[in-house]
Amino acid sequence: MSENVHMTFMDEVAALPACDKINECIQCGVCSGSCSTAERWEYPPRKVIAMVRAGMKDELLKSNSIWFCVSCYLCTARCPRDIKPANIVHGLESMALKEGYKPPTTTTTMYRSFAGSITEYGRVYEFGFMLKYFLKTNPFAALKMLPLAISLFTHGRMPLTAKPVKGREQLTKIISKMSEGGVR
Protein backbone atom coordinates (compact mmCIF):
# COMPACT_ATOMS: atom_id res chain seq x y z
CA MET A 1 0.00 0.00 0.00
CA SER A 2 3.05 2.23 0.19
CA GLU A 3 2.87 5.13 -2.24
CA ASN A 4 6.63 5.35 -2.54
CA VAL A 5 8.24 2.07 -3.46
CA HIS A 6 11.76 3.40 -3.07
CA MET A 7 11.39 4.15 0.59
CA THR A 8 11.51 1.54 3.30
CA PHE A 9 8.80 1.55 5.95
CA MET A 10 11.32 3.01 8.36
CA ASP A 11 12.28 5.81 5.97
CA GLU A 12 8.62 6.69 5.59
CA VAL A 13 8.12 6.86 9.35
CA ALA A 14 11.37 8.74 9.97
CA ALA A 15 10.23 11.39 7.49
CA LEU A 16 7.17 12.25 9.61
CA PRO A 17 7.37 15.23 11.98
CA ALA A 18 9.05 14.40 15.32
CA CYS A 19 9.65 10.79 14.23
CA ASP A 20 13.18 11.21 12.86
CA LYS A 21 15.02 9.56 15.75
CA ILE A 22 13.40 6.15 15.34
CA ASN A 23 16.67 4.59 14.19
CA GLU A 24 18.30 5.45 17.51
CA CYS A 25 16.05 3.03 19.42
CA ILE A 26 18.05 0.52 21.45
CA GLN A 27 15.05 -1.78 22.11
CA CYS A 28 15.42 -1.40 25.87
CA GLY A 29 11.66 -1.79 26.42
CA VAL A 30 11.19 1.16 28.78
CA CYS A 31 8.32 2.29 26.52
CA SER A 32 6.45 -1.00 26.84
CA GLY A 33 7.14 -1.14 30.57
CA SER A 34 5.80 2.40 31.01
CA CYS A 35 2.80 2.25 28.69
CA SER A 36 -0.55 2.92 30.43
CA THR A 37 -2.37 0.41 28.22
CA ALA A 38 0.37 -1.99 26.97
CA GLU A 39 -1.57 -5.12 27.91
CA ARG A 40 -4.19 -4.24 25.32
CA TRP A 41 -1.79 -3.75 22.40
CA GLU A 42 -1.36 -6.69 20.04
CA TYR A 43 2.25 -5.55 19.72
CA PRO A 44 3.34 -3.28 22.57
CA PRO A 45 5.37 -0.12 21.89
CA ARG A 46 8.86 -1.67 21.82
CA LYS A 47 7.66 -4.22 19.27
CA VAL A 48 5.96 -1.49 17.26
CA ILE A 49 9.33 0.22 16.83
CA ALA A 50 11.03 -3.10 16.01
CA MET A 51 8.36 -3.87 13.41
CA VAL A 52 8.80 -0.50 11.75
CA ARG A 53 12.50 -1.17 11.47
CA ALA A 54 11.90 -4.69 10.16
CA GLY A 55 9.59 -3.36 7.45
CA MET A 56 6.51 -5.21 8.77
CA LYS A 57 4.14 -2.51 7.66
CA ASP A 58 1.01 -4.49 6.80
CA GLU A 59 1.21 -6.66 9.89
CA LEU A 60 1.58 -3.63 12.16
CA LEU A 61 -0.93 -1.30 10.56
CA LYS A 62 -3.61 -3.99 10.35
CA SER A 63 -3.32 -4.68 14.10
CA ASN A 64 -5.01 -2.92 17.01
CA SER A 65 -1.59 -1.68 18.21
CA ILE A 66 -1.00 2.08 18.23
CA TRP A 67 -4.76 2.71 18.57
CA PHE A 68 -4.63 2.14 22.32
CA CYS A 69 -2.21 5.00 22.84
CA VAL A 70 -3.77 7.40 25.38
CA SER A 71 -1.08 10.06 24.78
CA CYS A 72 0.14 9.91 28.37
CA TYR A 73 3.73 10.42 27.15
CA LEU A 74 5.26 8.20 29.84
CA CYS A 75 7.22 6.40 27.11
CA THR A 76 8.39 9.71 25.69
CA ALA A 77 9.41 11.22 29.03
CA ARG A 78 11.37 8.07 29.93
CA CYS A 79 12.94 7.01 26.61
CA PRO A 80 16.71 6.98 27.14
CA ARG A 81 17.30 7.71 23.44
CA ASP A 82 14.68 10.45 23.17
CA ILE A 83 13.03 8.83 20.15
CA LYS A 84 9.55 10.12 21.11
CA PRO A 85 7.54 6.88 20.84
CA ALA A 86 4.19 8.67 21.35
CA ASN A 87 4.85 10.89 18.34
CA ILE A 88 5.87 7.88 16.28
CA VAL A 89 2.63 6.13 17.25
CA HIS A 90 0.50 9.11 16.19
CA GLY A 91 2.51 9.32 12.98
CA LEU A 92 1.75 5.65 12.32
CA GLU A 93 -1.93 6.26 13.02
CA SER A 94 -2.10 9.00 10.42
CA MET A 95 -0.20 6.81 7.94
CA ALA A 96 -2.61 3.91 8.50
CA LEU A 97 -5.69 6.10 7.96
CA LYS A 98 -4.32 7.83 4.87
CA GLU A 99 -3.36 4.56 3.27
CA GLY A 100 -6.71 2.95 3.91
CA TYR A 101 -5.80 0.33 6.50
CA LYS A 102 -8.74 -0.98 8.53
CA PRO A 103 -7.47 -1.89 11.99
CA PRO A 104 -9.91 -3.66 14.36
CA THR A 105 -10.90 -0.63 16.41
CA THR A 106 -13.57 2.07 16.36
CA THR A 107 -11.07 4.68 17.54
CA THR A 108 -10.42 5.42 13.86
CA THR A 109 -14.08 6.45 13.48
CA MET A 110 -13.89 8.54 16.65
CA TYR A 111 -10.78 10.33 15.34
CA ARG A 112 -12.51 11.05 12.02
CA SER A 113 -15.67 12.36 13.70
CA PHE A 114 -13.48 14.59 15.87
CA ALA A 115 -11.58 15.91 12.85
CA GLY A 116 -14.86 16.37 10.95
CA SER A 117 -16.13 18.62 13.70
CA ILE A 118 -13.04 20.81 13.39
CA THR A 119 -13.45 21.30 9.65
CA GLU A 120 -17.20 21.85 9.93
CA TYR A 121 -17.27 24.25 12.86
CA GLY A 122 -13.68 25.34 13.50
CA ARG A 123 -13.93 23.88 16.97
CA VAL A 124 -14.81 20.50 18.41
CA TYR A 125 -18.49 20.36 19.16
CA GLU A 126 -18.45 17.62 21.78
CA PHE A 127 -22.08 16.50 21.67
CA GLY A 128 -22.17 16.41 17.88
CA PHE A 129 -18.96 14.49 17.32
CA MET A 130 -19.86 11.89 19.95
CA LEU A 131 -23.32 11.43 18.46
CA LYS A 132 -21.82 11.01 15.00
CA TYR A 133 -19.36 8.45 16.32
CA PHE A 134 -22.06 6.39 18.02
CA LEU A 135 -24.38 6.51 15.00
CA LYS A 136 -21.56 5.26 12.78
CA THR A 137 -20.42 2.49 15.11
CA ASN A 138 -22.90 1.21 17.66
CA PRO A 139 -25.93 3.37 18.46
CA PHE A 140 -26.76 1.06 21.38
CA ALA A 141 -23.46 1.89 23.05
CA ALA A 142 -24.75 5.47 23.24
CA LEU A 143 -27.43 4.25 25.63
CA LYS A 144 -24.73 3.42 28.15
CA MET A 145 -23.55 7.00 27.90
CA LEU A 146 -27.02 8.41 28.39
CA PRO A 147 -26.99 8.83 32.20
CA LEU A 148 -23.73 10.79 32.05
CA ALA A 149 -24.89 12.81 29.04
CA ILE A 150 -28.09 13.81 30.86
CA SER A 151 -26.12 14.68 33.95
CA LEU A 152 -23.72 16.83 31.93
CA PHE A 153 -26.66 18.51 30.23
CA THR A 154 -28.43 19.34 33.49
CA HIS A 155 -25.17 20.72 34.89
CA GLY A 156 -24.80 23.06 31.93
CA ARG A 157 -21.91 21.14 30.43
CA MET A 158 -23.37 19.74 27.22
CA PRO A 159 -24.69 22.35 24.78
CA LEU A 160 -26.83 20.65 22.15
CA THR A 161 -26.13 23.06 19.34
CA ALA A 162 -22.86 23.86 17.61
CA LYS A 163 -21.42 27.34 17.48
CA PRO A 164 -19.47 27.56 14.22
CA VAL A 165 -16.69 30.14 14.34
CA LYS A 166 -15.57 32.41 11.55
CA GLY A 167 -12.02 31.07 11.77
CA ARG A 168 -13.13 27.81 10.13
CA GLU A 169 -12.81 29.49 6.74
CA GLN A 170 -9.12 30.11 7.44
CA LEU A 171 -8.75 26.57 8.73
CA THR A 172 -10.16 25.14 5.52
CA LYS A 173 -7.59 27.08 3.48
CA ILE A 174 -4.73 26.11 5.80
CA ILE A 175 -5.75 22.46 5.72
CA SER A 176 -6.00 22.35 1.96
CA LYS A 177 -2.61 24.03 1.57
CA MET A 178 -0.98 21.68 4.10
CA SER A 179 -2.23 18.64 2.18
CA GLU A 180 -0.58 19.84 -1.04
CA GLY A 181 2.87 18.79 0.12
CA GLY A 182 2.01 15.09 0.10
CA VAL A 183 2.29 12.85 3.10
CA ARG A 184 5.81 13.87 4.04
Binding site: L97, M110, R112, A115, I118, G167, L171, S179
Partner: peptide
Protein backbone atom coordinates in the same frame (compact mmCIF):
# COMPACT_ATOMS: atom_id res chain seq x y z
CA UNK B 1 -10.34 36.35 19.09
CA UNK B 2 -12.03 33.75 16.90
CA UNK B 3 -9.73 30.95 18.04
CA UNK B 4 -9.99 27.51 16.48
CA UNK B 5 -9.31 23.95 17.70
CA UNK B 6 -5.71 22.88 18.38
CA UNK B 7 -6.38 19.47 16.80
CA UNK B 8 -5.49 17.51 19.93
CA UNK B 9 -4.23 13.92 19.54
CA UNK B 10 -7.12 12.72 17.33
CA UNK B 11 -6.34 15.15 14.53
CA UNK B 12 -2.64 14.30 14.56
CA UNK B 13 -3.72 10.66 14.29
CA UNK B 14 -5.80 11.53 11.22
CA UNK B 15 -3.29 13.78 9.47
CA UNK B 16 -0.11 14.97 11.12
CA UNK B 17 0.55 17.77 8.65
CA UNK B 18 -2.93 19.26 8.63
CA UNK B 19 -2.89 19.08 12.42
CA UNK B 20 0.31 21.10 12.56
CA UNK B 21 -1.19 23.64 10.17
CA UNK B 22 -4.26 24.30 12.28
CA UNK B 23 -2.23 24.55 15.49
CA UNK B 24 0.07 27.05 13.77
CA UNK B 25 -2.93 29.35 13.18
Amino acid sequence: EDWTCCGSSPYSGVDKFKAIGITAR
